[in-house]
Design a protein around this nucleic acid. Structure first.
Lengths: 335, 335
DNA sequence: CTAATTGTTGCTCTCGTTTGCATAACTTTA
DNA sequence: TAAAGTTATGCAAACGAGAGCAACAATTAG
């Protein structure tokens, strides 16, 4: 592994000052054609590459964006990262990735790391971090929070209307004549989760359907819980004719256990999820679900952040992206 | 956003030289108890954070590992990244993520970026990049290539035995009395793909089952292609009683189209995939598949890389991880 | 032909840290 | 008691690049 050429080596080889080399590299200032080609030749011969770390130090700008998510192996987040990564690259930024496993301790660790590494900004998905901590971070480094809204209008945020999404899902079921609609909730300390529950309740109330606590279960967004919940729901009376799960993964669990118990989807029970992760269209039956546009949210988050970095003082602070019901084959009309 | 305190500010405040502060921060060298606590107090009061970019420049070491993958939104790769990320963090490294969309052009761009940013090493998943280019990169920066083997014993590599994995899948089907076993291949310019095909052929030969070109189809690892392939296979005679798909996603496609065409899995046709991505156990029926241990590969890759960085000259260069057949419910015995 | 303007190039300082060496004070050892 | 460690500290020079200013040459205007 040969040692790396620096801008000085190039300068010496080309018989110019290091500033001239810098100008050629950055295409700034004026350099004569002759000098430019002399420098370019030296660069090529020495296989010179500008050291971006050194540049960052001097410029106080790293062209790094930190993306901090709870679980990169979850398609839900990896899709967001995909969108963010792509848009960032197109705009000259690279990604510093942090996976927190949802632990507040690791969230803090990564936020510190991002600041210490002079990241230009942070895109943060941290459903449990306290509001005032988020504000504190926002005072230290440009920040966009994703999939979470917060009552502070100087914090950039990208989210969806979970309440509306849940309502549209439940109203869709009601329109298919379902009366006994069960709801499988996510964890209660996650805002998304609470709002989806609220949407469920509001939809029922709006259509004068009584709320039955036996048809509501609180859970943790995991597949196994979907399996467990299905059994639970079907051991009660009245059995639901439809189940709305707070995320797709749990809906998969519901469907799998239904199959095992010889309950047909959608013939015997309709199932609706939430998120529309990429695999929701691949399962059997393809899942009716509320699209949570993660890829778009990733893109939008980076766009907001870059705008802020460029001092484009957009008046818009938060982006409430559309979530639409995707009707597939896990639901059907009854009676 | 207040300006950031530097090591000099701390030194001034604590009335010591900046070297003493550096020693306290890095817990290196000897500092008296009194001085140490004086410095720590100043650090706290000024909210000082060491600038890792500056440290990297001085130390010629960034504590960054670049991970370059074709598609972070593909569960297959995101699981690998998860493993790598986690192990890297535990060992004091952060991740610089690159998503190449499988394009050689972007692969090169990210490799350059990694070098220019002084990444300590690269973990690369690039099935199409030419061998000699890989060797060239390996001369410039510590490298581990994942999910690909190469005939150069100075290039660190982590992979699985695709041939063996495919053979075990097909032999399993043969033991279930299947004779008409179709094979849905991935792209022919990917080594994994070719070796899986070879495994398929070897298994058939070993058991004296004639190879029927009508039962072989070349494709692209995509869901839609699985759907298409199922139709194709079932429009021919003899219809296969089992299909081995070169990856899980295509297997999902096969299953979905089967359902739509009212062909029951596994009653009418057995289906086996390859990879065991996290969703393979969640579909209906749960997929029998060959486990491709991506998470482990991610961990192993970082481990190899760190060993190299620490000059632990392990004799082992390449790791051929175990891949095992995971029998679920998409296959059954016939006759 | 002189003065003003423009185009090209280089010098030096700075970014925030670490590394290598120097130094002083304090211990131990013989 | 003197020589030889140890411990605790600081100084100056990197690390590789960019910014501001200064210098000088070439061109144009009057």
């Amino acid at each position: 592994m040969q040692t790396r050429a620096t801008i000085r080596d190039v300068a010496k080889k080309a018989n110019v000052s290091l500033m001239t080399v810098s100008r050629v590299v950055n295409k700034k200032g004026n350099t004569s054609k002759a000098t430019t080609s002399k420098v370019l030749k030296a660069i090529k011969e020495l296989n010179y590459r500008p050291n971006i770390t050194a540049r960052s130090l001097a410029a106080k700008k790293s062209d790094f964006i930190a993306i901090i998510v709870p679980d990169i192996s979850n398609p839900f987040f990896s899709e967001m990262v995909k969108g963010a990564e792509d848009f960032a690259r197109e705009n000259g930024y690279n990604i510093f990735l942090g996976d927190t496993e949802g632990k507040v301790e690791l969230e803090k660790e990564y936020i510190d790391a991002a600041i210490n590494r002079m990241a230009d900004g942070i895109i943060l998905v941290a459903p449990r971090l306290e509001d005032n901590l988020i504000c504190k971070i926002n005072d230290n480094i440009p920040l966009v929070i994703v999939d979470r809204s917060i009552n502070k209008n100087d914090v950039l945020q990208v989210y969806i209307d979970n309440l509306k999404g849940a309502m549209s899902a439940v109203e869709y079921l009601i329109n298919l004549n379902h009366k006994h609609i069960a709801f499988l909730s996510g964890p209660k300390d996650v805002l998304d989760s609470l709002q989806r529950e609220k949407g469920y309740i509001m939809a029922l109330k709006k259509h004068n359907i009584p709320i039955n606590p036996k048809l509501m279960l609180t859970s943790d967004f995991k597949f196994e819980s979907g399996r467990y919940a299905f059994e639970k729901f079907f051991s009660n009376y009245p059995k639901p004719t439809a189940i709305f799960a707070s995320n797709d993964i749990m809906a998969f669990g519901l469907i799998q256990r239904a199959h095992e118990m010889n309950v047909k989807v959608p013939k015997d029970v309709s199932i609706v999820g939430f998120d529309d992760i990429s695999l929701s269209s691949l399962v059997n039956p393809p899942l009716t679900t509320v699209r949570h546009p993660m890829l778009k949210m990733g893109i939008k988050a980076v766009e907001l952040l870059i705008n802020k970095l460029d001092n484009q003082l957009d008046t818009k602070i938060n982006f409430n992206l559309e979530n639409t019901l995707i009707v597939r084959k896990s639901t059907r009309k009854i009676k």
